[in-house]
Design a protein around this nucleic acid. Structure first.
Lengths: 140, 140
DNA sequence: CTTTAAGTAACCACGAAGATTACATCTGTC
DNA sequence: GACAGATGTAATCTTCGTGGTTACTTAAAG
């Protein structure tokens, strides 16, 4: 959803876009979009203004925004969850496995983010424009 | 949990281990372990027998099992979920974004699995043995 | 035939994420 | 200053995935 929203903002090239408009494209509720925009604001990916005729826009060029930044802006929780119930400390394996796996999972997640970082929002836009024979520049 | 279970099996070096024993180490219910073992059996990572004095054991050396195999054996769903509600097809972005992102996310997931593949179950065992000053070979 | 352990179905509990409603707040315009 | 249009935000509900629990069936070994 976050990438979708940012892609629409990139498509509008600097124009301010309302949460209602974005919600229509993503097919969800404007409030969900606003919550999402709050995360993106904190990460300095978008700028939002209140008031009549306002809305959000990208704070940088799509060329300078990559998917890893978007991922980190939105995904606050770890992909690999630590177990809810602590392993049995009396078991020599259970005693140390959690900490060991934490390091390995962090490495795997880092590898994934490195791959995401290779793609910019502009790349996404190019792929979207190429794959779809979408006409009508500013249609809703 | 899956790595934990396989680590215990590796620790026991070929001995058959019951689901009750594994459950005690992970601190969960034997049924949960059995469900997990079914997935690991399908991927040929463990062998299980019924009956008195039976249980499960690794089907290969821990050196020949890597974390990516374990991940794939257990994680049947995609890490990146496709949106529940289809984007607005009338929007030029919404029309094509899902397919575009699917490819990018598959690439990111593949990068993560490649990183996981670098670590074998034997490596995990070494790390566990090194980090914990765990005495008592076959203790529960 | 009894014992032991896996296979399996059914149901519950919990948490995460999105959807929805309602209301407060800000901003530019008249 | 009032109003209109937009965001900020809280509260609630639904849905879904995962793990936990109980209970029962099936298979293997003595």
């Amino acid at each position: 959803m976050a990438v979708h929203v940012l892609a629409v903002l990139a498509y509008k090239e600097g124009d301010r876009v309302t949460s209602a408009f974005l919600a229509a494209s993503v097919n969800t509720n404007p409030v969900v979009i606003r919550r999402l925009l709050l995360s993106l604001q904190k990460s300095r990916l978008v700028e939002t203004c209140k008031g009549v005729g306002s809305g959000s826009r990208l704070s940088r060029s799509p060329r300078r925004i990559n998917l890893a930044e978007i991922y980190r802006a939105v995904e606050d929780t770890e992909s690999f969850a630590t177990p809810a119930r602590k392993p049995n400390a009396a078991c020599p394996v259970g005693h140390c496995i959690t900490e060991t796996l934490f390091r390995l999972f962090a490495s795997a997640q880092s590898a994934m983010e490195k791959d995401l970082a290779k793609t910019s929002l502009a790349d996404v836009m190019d792929a979207v424009k190429a794959s779809g024979v979408c006409s009508g520049k500013k249609a809703a």
